[in-house]
Amino acid sequence: MGSEILFFFEVVVGGLLAGTMYSLVALGFVLIYKASATFNFAQGAMVFFAVLSFVGFMELGLPFFLAFIVTIGLMVIVGLSTERLVIRPLMNQSEDTLLMATIGLGYVLEGLAQAAWGVEVRRLDLGIPDFPIMFIADAIGIFISALDLTAGAVAAFMVISLAVLFTQTKIGLGLRAVADDPGAASSIGIPLKHIMLLVWSAAGVVALVAGCLWGARAGVQFALVDLALKALPVLIIGGFSSIPGAIVGGLIIGSTEKVLEVYIGPFFGGAIEGWAPYVLAVFFLLKRPEGLFGEKIIRRV
């Protein structure tokens, strides 16, 4: 009986830690959504583009940290060109137009990445093994992967720094103002293009970090683009505009999909973790469309 409960905890903890990786991807979406109220369909492609370039630079002989910094620079350039070539010309168009543009941007990034670095699946070794940590296993009998634990720590770090950026800095205030009403923000002199540039660059860096963690687990390959769309149910549950929401949503999706897979999966012939999160998301859409932490839509009548 004791080992049953222990196994359940192991499933939940494993799920929670895997969930932090969903949270990381979702964070990239939240950043863009906060500033332009658009679901950035290109985020998955950005994850792929970032990590593929990172691996590519390392293959060219750059050491780990240098490659990481060069890739950050590259993602800032991607953010800069996106702002200049896509966002700024579409600034005064409807949100739908911007949404369609991000879909197009996604395909362009996928194409560019593969044209530059080739299509074969790469291995990414972060030097962190995807194996259970033995002293934890010995002490409490739960098997936790070192990679999962690292991902959790990295996600926590990213979340805290972004939360500080949003709530404690002048740029964060400007960013939230732009998200609420770009016209009014511009009327008091907040430079929209700087804000957009910052947000797209930050989303690029988040994409790189998420890509590294996912790439280390699943290999650096095209499937990362679709994996990133797991962020959609995460955001529906957590709320599109909320950083804590992205985290909690990720944890909920991560843990429930693992628990469901292990305990209910066998009745459906397994592999329900692919679609179970979407069922949960639909439930949320019906009961609480703004998500757990999303901002309630304020409308004066």
């Binding site: 002048k170 205030l173 103002a177 009014a184 009327s187 008091i188 002199g189 907040i190 304020i298």
Partner: peptide, 23 residues
């Protein structure tokens, strides 16, 4: 000051006022 006031609805009153000093 734009027509229709255009406050930042999700920001607090104080944050709204402070945002005016952005430049």
């Amino acid at each position: 000051v734009l027509e229709g006031r255009r406050c930042f609805g999700h920001l607090t009153v104080e944050e709204n006022v402070i945002s005016g000093a952005y430049t």
